[in-house]
Design a protein around this nucleic acid. Sequence first.
DNA 1: TATCCAGATGCAATTGAGTTGCATATGGAC
DNA 2: GTCCATATGCAACTCAATTGCATCTGGATA
Lengths: 140, 140
Amino acid sequence: MNDFSPAVMKTLLKQAGLRATPARIATLTLLSQSSKPLSHAEVSAELKNLGVDKTTVYRNLNDLVGANLLRRAELGDHIWRFELANHHDEACSLHPHFVCIDCGDVFCIDEKYLQARDFQLENQNVTVKEILVRGHCNNC
Amino acid sequence: MNDFSPAVMKTLLKQAGLRATPARIATLTLLSQSSKPLSHAEVSAELKNLGVDKTTVYRNLNDLVGANLLRRAELGDHIWRFELANHHDEACSLHPHFVCIDCGDVFCIDEKYLQARDFQLENQNVTVKEILVRGHCNNC
DNA sequence: TATCCAGATGCAATTGAGTTGCATATGGAC
DNA sequence: GTCCATATGCAACTCAATTGCATCTGGATA
Ligand SMILES: [Mn+2]
Ligand SMILES: [Mn+2]
Ligand SMILES: [Zn+2]
Ligand SMILES: [Zn+2]
C-alpha cells in the first residue's frame, strides 16, 4: 500500500529504539506491500523462505505493535491481524475493516464509506478504537 | 436482562428444534439474568454445580447461537462471549453495536449515527450483516 | 405408561493460536 | 574488531475451543 524501501524501514525501526534486523525489515516491507492486514500465520509463511522462525515473527509483530509501527486488529475470528500503523498513508487514519463471513477475506474500508469518528451514545461519549463490518463479499 | 422463566426457555428451545435439556434451560436462564455477555468459562463455572460438563456447555452455546437464540461476541480478548439474541428486546433491525474494550459493556448504536447499509467497496458489492464498534466507554 | 432412537451428554484426546524458557547468535555502539 | 544488550531458533508449554466415541435421555409414538 505504501511500499517503503528497506532503508526507510531501517530508519523507522531505529527511531523506535528497535534493532533493524532482516526479519523486522522483511516484516515491515511485507506489510507495506499488502492491501489488507495479515495474520501471524500469513506473515510467517511469507518469511519462512528467509529462514525466519515463526516464534520470531510472533515476537516481532508484537514488539512492532508496542512501538506503534504496526496496528493489531481482532476481526472477529480469533486471529490477530497486523497492518502498518500508517497503512493508508493518510496520517494514521482509523479506518474500518470488512470481513467476509464466508471466505474470511478482509478489506480495508475507506473512511468515506463509513466514518470512524467518536460517537455520542445515550448521553455517553465513547472513544472509537475499531470499526468492524461483517458480511458477505462479492464472491460469496 | 429479560429473566424468562424455565417454561419460556423450554418453549423457545422447542420452537428452535432443540431438546429442552436441563443444561440448555440453565444456560438460557443464566444468560437471561445477566446484564453482560458471559464467556464459556463463566457459564461452565456456573453450571458445574448442576453436574454439567464444560464440553456440553461449549456445544450448547454454539448450538444455541446456530438456532439464533444466542448471539456470540468477540470483545477483543480472544474469548467468545454469549448473550441472549433478544437481549436488547428491540425489534431485530440490523443496527450496529458498541463494545467497550475495557469493561465489556455493550450498547446498541442508533442507525442515525452509523448506517448499516450495504457498501460498494472497490467495485465490489458487499452485504452487511453486522457492524461492530469497539472502543472505550464513558466509564472506562 | 412403556418403547425406542435421533439427538444430547460425559470424558478423554486433540487442535491451533499464541507464549515462554533458554541457549546461541548478532546488531550496532564504542 | 570487541562486547553485550537485544534478537533469534527451537522446543516445550498454555489455554480456549473442538472432536471422537461410548453412553444416556428427551420426547415422539404407540
Ligand atoms: Mn486496513
Ligand atoms: Mn442491540
Ligand atoms: Zn467472501
Ligand atoms: Zn467500559
